[in-house]
Design a protein around this nucleic acid. Structure first.
Lengths: 253, 253
DNA sequence: TTAGCCCCTGACGTTGCGTAATGGTCAATA
DNA sequence: TATTGACCATTACGCAACGTCAGGGGCTAA
């Protein structure tokens, strides 16, 4: 019934580092140190560790745990109740956050029935303005004023339904990218479908479509860090793969 | 429409340090630096800060926020959805923790109908053993073997109802301590009631009551760090006040 | 001119470990 | 027996998101 660090770690599921740390802060000292300086834990320590882990599961800080287990067991309850109250506050908080997030998402997707059309219009206007503020200059430089203005015009003219299907399409593109990437071949059927959907998605955003612009955007997915990281975050190597797929689709490769 | 650090801090509710930190990590740079080296923020920065705080409320890491706000707004949604999933996981986790805690508390209080009496007996036995392990030696040294053993005997003999009312009493004592402490006078009526309840609570735990032992325990509340911190955590200065109240109650002061 | 309140830049502390880096120990194998 | 590889040890830096000094300059009013 004696354990070294890694044996107890194995047994309890915590790391060796954790055990050494608990020793260091005096939360759980080994029963003894053997001749070679190894920490040796016994039965009592295993029990204590289980208690500690129990409270840790309950999200109590190590300092809190230290206080709790130093008290006689019949007063530990008070601490538990206290902690319970705090957890409830935390949950209430989290719930509020989630509710806000839900509303935000719903709002942004236009899924909820907007009470007044104006709100939605205002929102789209806001989106356009924001895009302009963030990307305006460089996008205009690359694609020209007319094209950009026309694109914004189109967006402002989009219906809620348009907007929603655009977003659904965008989700579809992502899962397609994952599937197609798995084939490893930008000339595969999946990649072809991916590039096709991507073109369709573009149609929602661009007033006029041209192969050249599509190819240019594909390059930007790789060269512009922001777009790149956006795709990379979902599929490692996704930006390059998407670009290649598009280039193949367009017959450039 | 220009703000210095502390003005923007005031306006937005974050600390000045936070603003400097956001500048440092490049999340929110001031519009300009004036001749004296002061950070000056403008309208755009206020807007950006609001966005940042919005996502921060949603419990997104600053790194995450940086990524989100660098993207064009119509793709920010995907990030939001991702984050939403994570929050839901977090809530499920928290719910599980709270449920466990509820069960534990209920179990320990004996509020739930215990399926078998043995479980409760086992629990009390466990409590006694644990107390013995933690405090046995010194308590026995202070109060003598017979008294301690008798106390344990009494505890083992307690019914669920006894146990529960003991715990309720303990809660009552705490709120009384807060009220009495507010008077600042250990000879006040509230303090008297407090000491009385404390005696009653003791009766649950001690087989025989004596003024001397009660006074001794009162002293221990101050001198023993564990008891002391237990009371201090609820009422600053509570340990001393409780001791004094008891001493007055017993006529020692 | 001095007091009092603003601003700045370091730099260390917090929590709960992860992750090297560097070196000793143990059991088994070549 | 010497070496290898799996353990053990300690020391120390790194992480997130700031809080909190410490030390030094700036601005305005009395």
């Amino acid at each position: 019934m004696e354990y070294t660090v890694s044996q107890l770690a194995q047994l309890s599921g915590v790391s060796g580092r954790t055990l050494r740390y608990y020793d260091q802060i005096g939360l759980l000292k080994p029963a003894r140190i053997n001749a070679s300086g190894y920490r040796i834990y016994g039965r009592k320590e295993v029990d204590l560790l289980q208690q500690i882990l129990f409270y840790r599961e309950l999200d109590v800080s190590l300092e809190g745990i230290r206080e709790i287990i130093s008290q006689p067991s019949f007063v530990q309850m008070t601490a538990l109740k206290n902690h319970y109250k705090q957890l409830q506050k935390k949950r209430a908080n989290l719930d509020a956050v989630i509710a806000t997030l839900e509303k935000t998402i719903a709002d942004k997707e236009g899924r909820v029935i907007m009470e007044d059309k104006e709100k939605f219009e205002g929102f789209k206007k806001h989106m356009v303005e924001e895009n302009e503020r963030n990307y305006g200059e460089e996008v205009r430089r690359k694609y020209g004023d007319d094209l950009v203005d026309a694109s914004y015009q189109k967006m402002k003219g989009m219906s809620k339904e348009d907007y929603q299907s655009m977003n659904e399409l965008s989700e579809e593109i992502f899962s397609l990218l994952e599937k197609a990437y798995a084939t490893g071949d930008p000339a595969s059927d999946e990649a072809d479908e991916l590039a096709g959907k991507h073109k369709k998605w573009l149609m929602y955003n661009w007033s006029s479509y041209s192969k050249e612009a599509h190819a240019g955007l594909a390059e930007m997915y790789v060269s512009d860090e922001r777009f790149r990281s956006f795709y990379e975050s979902r599929v490692k190597g996704g930006a390059e793969f998407l670009r290649d797929s598009i280039l193949v689709y367009l017959g450039y490769k």
